[in-house]
Amino acid sequence: MTDLSAPPSSYAARNSTPQGDLLELTHDSLDKPSFLNSVVDSVRRDRAGAVALFIGTTRDEFQGKTVTRLEYQAYTRLAMKTLSSIIEQAHTSWTQPTDLTPEALLRVAVIHRLGAVPVGQTSIIIAVSSPHRREAFEACEWILEQVKLKVQIWKREWYAGSEDAY
């Protein structure tokens, strides 16, 4: 029997950037409170007046169909490289070289689940710290959209009453 939770091309990986940002692909649950706290702590800085946090979860319905689970596969090596590039671009895009705030983004963490993710469970966590809330919120949303557009992670949706994934 094939283990759908750990496809061979989708191996777990964890890395950090030179700025100290965290990137991770994992088959482990992201729903433990201690894990979420560790992600937030990884981006906290004394200069940060804001930490924006996005938690994406598997919903139970899509376009009138009952969703039973999502399944994520990745080309891990390339996905990690792309994640790193997105985070670097975010740092560059939100840099405001002033004497008061030399950096608009201080730290970023992106953790994405691989394998089967049942309804109600977390698929992705993005945390961003910044001296100001506006930049934290904007960067967090921009990073999410870039991950969805560019990172080599593929999602399959499974529906009730169907053996087919879409």
Rank of each mutant, 00 (worst) to 15 (best):
E103D: 05
K148H: 13
T122I: 10
V147N: 03
R107A: 09
I124K: 08
T76H: 03
I86L: 13
P97G: 01
S38E: 15
D99H: 11
A127P: 03
E135P: 03
E24W: 04
Q89S: 15
E71I: 02
R69M: 03
H132I: 09
A116I: 15
I87G: 00
C140F: 00
R59Y: 05
E103W: 04
K32R: 13
I126W: 11
S16F: 09
E71V: 01
V51E: 02
R107L: 15
L105G: 00
A104T: 15
I126F: 14
T101L: 13
Y72G: 07
A104K: 15
F35P: 01
D28V: 02
P118F: 06
D46M: 08
T98E: 04
E71W: 07
H91K: 07
Q19C: 02
E61T: 09
Q63I: 09
A74R: 07
L23C: 10
L23I: 08
H132Q: 13
I126Y: 10
G56L: 03
A109K: 10
R77S: 12
V67E: 05
Y72H: 09
L144Y: 06
A79W: 01
S130M: 11
L30M: 11
F54C: 11
Q73N: 07
S130P: 04
H112L: 05
S123G: 10
S84N: 15
G20A: 04
V67S: 06
E145M: 07
Q73G: 06
T66F: 13
S9I: 07
V128R: 00
D31W: 11
F35C: 08
G120E: 10
D41Y: 07
D28R: 09
L53Q: 12
V39W: 10
D60H: 12
W142N: 14
T26H: 04
E71D: 05
S130V: 05
R133G: 06
Y72Q: 12
L36T: 10
R14T: 15
T82E: 14
G115R: 00
A50I: 10
A48T: 09
S129F: 11
G56T: 04
E61I: 04
H27V: 07
V43N: 09
A50C: 14
A90L: 12
T57P: 01
Q73L: 03
D31L: 05
A74F: 08
G49I: 11
D28P: 05
I125Q: 01
R69L: 06
M80R: 01
H91W: 14
A104W: 15
D21A: 02
D28H: 07
V67H: 09
A136T: 08
A79M: 09
I126Q: 11
S129N: 12
P8I: 02
H132R: 13
S10H: 08
Y75F: 14
D99T: 14
P97Q: 06
C140D: 00
K81L: 02
D60P: 11
S85A: 11
L36S: 03
D41T: 14
A13S: 12
L25V: 08
A139V: 01
R47I: 13
L144Q: 14
A79K: 03
